[in-house]
């Protein structure tokens, strides 16, 4: 590991200045559960880590009529222990609740998960199906990027030199909305998704038709995938086994997994189909309350 400096700025501006100055030899530190492992594994040669946890905007956790704002450094447990988030954003909680074990969840942030941009990141697909945006601050000002556009490759994001993820905004779910996320792992905890699916549905007033659907897939491509074809296939469709099965098959076709130590192509494709079905049904159930 390259010996690095530790800095804990108190403002976004300060953080950006340090990051900009060091270029790729500095990185933000949220929970550190990816960063410290990677630094030790010599993935990065860092001169500085920039702790974001003393920056108020990065530690905010607000739920209001405008939606949910999650500071980039907020650890998972604060999300799943939050009564209002639990009741109003169960799909987000599904992801936060399964990242690592309890010790990891004390530290690991949703923001860190997103910025680490692993295809398997358990927080990312839920954010995509909730239509969340990443609030980015940088040397040339602030900008917002939809979460589905945030990851551009394994470990790669849209963030440019000096840019920092400040928080994530999740819009207030409309009525008739439900969402769920599930992954498949060979063990029951402490494992990385072999394949995973998040689904959100918005049902019409009758509760028997899909108004709109968002489906996102993890661990089956270079980034988490927003499965637009599968999502669109359900738009305006009646809720029945056939429409759900068809969407699951399309989702399977939209996935492009590889075979590696965590799973095979064949198995991953099968899992996407199975879990998509299960998640559509779970999201419907939640939408119906």
């Amino acid at each position: 590991m390259h010996p690095f400096n530790y800095v804990a700025p108190l403002t976004v501006k300060e953080a950006i200045d340090i990051l900009e100055k060091h270029g790729d030899r500095a990185r933000p530190l949220a929970g550190g559960t990816d960063l410290l492992v990677q630094a030790r594994g010599n993935k990065w040669d860092l001169d500085a880590v920039v702790d974001v946890k003393k920056i108020p905007e990065a530690m905010q956790l607000d739920v209001s009529n405008n939606g949910l704002t999650i500071g980039a450094g907020v650890p998972c447990y604060q999300i799943y222990d939050h009564e209002k988030i639990k009741s109003d954003y169960p799909g987000i909680v599904d992801g936060a609740f399964i990242i690592g074990g309890i010790q990891i969840q004390s530290r690991a942030a949703i923001g860190g998960n997103l910025c680490n941009a692993a295809p398997s990141g358990d927080a990312i697909c839920p954010l995509i199906v909730y239509g969340a945006t990443a609030n980015i601050a940088g040397p040339s000002g602030n900008r917002d990027v939809s979460v589905e556009d945030f990851c551009v490759g394994p470990g790669k994001t849209v963030l440019k030199n000096g840019e920092l993820l400040v928080s994530i905004s999740v819009p207030d779910p409309p009525s008739g909305f439900g969402a769920a996320y599930e992954r498949f792992i060979p063990r029951n905890e402490m494992d990385i998704a072999v394949a995973a699916v998040a689904v959100s549905v918005t049902l019409d007033n009758s509760g028997t038709n899909f108004e709109s659907v968002r489906i996102a897939l993890a661990s089956v491509g270079p980034t988490p995938i927003f499965a637009t074809k599968a999502s669109n296939s359900l738009q305006g469709k009646p809720i029945n086994e056939r429409s759900i099965s068809e969407a699951a098959t399309i989702a399977k076709d939209e996935s492009s997994p590889i075979s590696d130590m965590r799973g095979t192509i064949e198995h991953r494709k099968q899992l996407i189909e199975v879990i998509t079905k299960r998640m559509i049904n779970k999201a419907i159930k939640r939408a119906r309350g």
Partner: peptide, 9 residues
């Protein structure tokens, strides 16, 4: 909160 002290600076 319990944490893994190897992953805390």
């Amino acid at each position: 909160r319990i944490v893994d002290s190897c992953l805390v600076l």
